[in-house]
Amino acid sequence: MTQAESPPSVADEVERFDIVAIASSAGGIRALSLVLGGLPFGFPVPVLVVQHLDPRHETVIADVLGRRSTLKVKLAEANEHAAPGTVYVAPPNRHLLVGPGGELTLSSSELVHFVRPSADLLFESVAGAYGARAIACVLTGSGSDGAMGVSAVKSRGGTVIAEDPESAEFSGMPEAAVSTGSVDFVLPLGEIADVIAALVESRSV
């Protein structure tokens, strides 16, 4: 396990984590399959996912990921409440955001860094709604989506994980996240699920 320069000291001061947000792009289906597949049955918090998808086609991502995880995986719907043990994937061409009570919002507002859904918008909403009770994770992908968002999560006391850019299939997104100085853990893909589960379990009540 490799830690970034800033230790996750703020995370030690909170009682629990209440949400996990994960972002990926190119190479993301494989990475998400491994991470979600490694989270235990009965995982006690909701997981929100932004994966950049082709907006011109219907997606089967929820079905694909659901076959590789013990957690329920579904496309997020507007105004539903994020439930523990469920993975909510942003639909193609819609931004996914979450409010303080766990209410999900879908938006067709303008592209952010040329993409919709945007990891930055998801992470910023998670930071505002959950503060130090949030975990944000950036996986493989090209571009820099998520970098501004992880800084927002960190600034509110949340914990940030990035896939190791050196071993990521596409290094752009995790490298941009790490370069912000806001990442607490820089990990090989195979270790991320165990660290997320351990963090959540260590703060469970």
Rank of each mutant, 00 (worst) to 15 (best):
A11I: 02
E13Y: 02
E13F: 08
E15V: 12
F17G: 00
F17R: 15
I22N: 00
I22D: 09
A23E: 08
S25I: 00
A26Q: 04
G27L: 13
G28L: 03
I29H: 01
I29A: 05
A31M: 07
S33M: 12
L34F: 08
L34C: 02
L36F: 06
G37W: 12
F41A: 13
F41D: 07
F43W: 14
P44T: 01
V45Y: 07
V47K: 09
V47D: 11
V49F: 04
V50P: 10
Q51E: 08
H52V: 12
D54Q: 13
P55E: 01
P55M: 00
R56Q: 15
H57V: 06
T59D: 04
I61K: 01
A62K: 05
R67F: 03
K72D: 03
V73Q: 10
L75N: 05
A76W: 05
A76L: 03
E77V: 09
E80H: 00
A82D: 01
G85Q: 10
G85M: 13
Y88L: 07
Y88E: 11
V89H: 05
V89Y: 05
P92T: 10
P92C: 05
R94G: 08
L97A: 11
G99T: 01
G101T: 14
L104N: 11
S108Q: 13
E110F: 05
E110A: 14
H113K: 15
F114M: 11
S118I: 10
A127G: 02
A129S: 15
Y130T: 04
G131F: 05
I135G: 01
T140L: 09
S142V: 13
S144N: 07
D145R: 05
A147T: 02
G149V: 05
